[in-house]
Design a protein around this nucleic acid. Sequence first.
DNA 1: GATGACCTGTGA
DNA 2: TCACAGGTCATC
Length: 262
Amino acid sequence: MPEILEAEAARLVLEESALKRKIVSVEATDAWYLKGGLTLRAARAALPGHKFIRARRRGKQLFLDTNLSGPVVGLHLGMSGRVVVDRKAAGDPLLYASNRDAKEWYRFAVVFADGGRLALRDPRRLGAVVFDADEDRLGPDALSLGLVDLRAAVSKSRAPLKAVLMDQKRIAGLGNLLTDEALWRGAFDPTRPANSLDASELARLHRAIRTTLRTLGRRGGSHTGDLMVARLPGGACPLDGAPLRRQKVGGRTTYFCPQHQI
DNA sequence: GATGACCTGTGA
DNA sequence: TCACAGGTCATC
């Protein structure tokens, strides 16, 4: 997604405008979008008559709790999804996703008794709606990540540091852009074995992650990092001007500075 | 763990 | 036409 910052923006919109409204119907023209065995029939049997009472998030995964022991509705935005409540879309426009507004991109919607609706718009269809998902498949949330959590996440693997940070069952929420930015700010080579960090490096990485999330959160999203402007073939490090390296790490395109990220 | 698959849109 | 995209999953 939309990484953790966009998911949090979506959660806020849900919290502010999707709670305590009676649900009257469910629209899911795209059966593909329902995952974990969920069917349109089941969703229509389970949701109408209920209200959402809480909007939660763990990493990039959103959860809506319902009253009267209804299901927990899980929403995932995939690579291009956005939450739209009534006419208001959550968060900033996505960089690599179109911000056009085609009818057929609306994959799922919950209609409220007042006539409003909560919808998911997702051109690429990589998002998902799931009921009662196993939330513990995700690691600790990156926005409240403690140093102890970070140590536990990285200390047991010699996989590339970046791959470990992006592994959602170890730490939930860090995606490609945020991870590159945090490693750049903390001056870490993304390909370093995760378990090679000593105590002071772990503390430095922890600070870098926190600073990255706080700063980019204030600026308005995962795409507002300092490294972002140089994220193109031939880009130069905004810190020291060295040519950035572009390389696949953990299966994702990675930009880093071979000069200061060691 | 690395790889390719999933799906669609965009821009070169 | 091709490569690429802020994510995740199955599979080797």
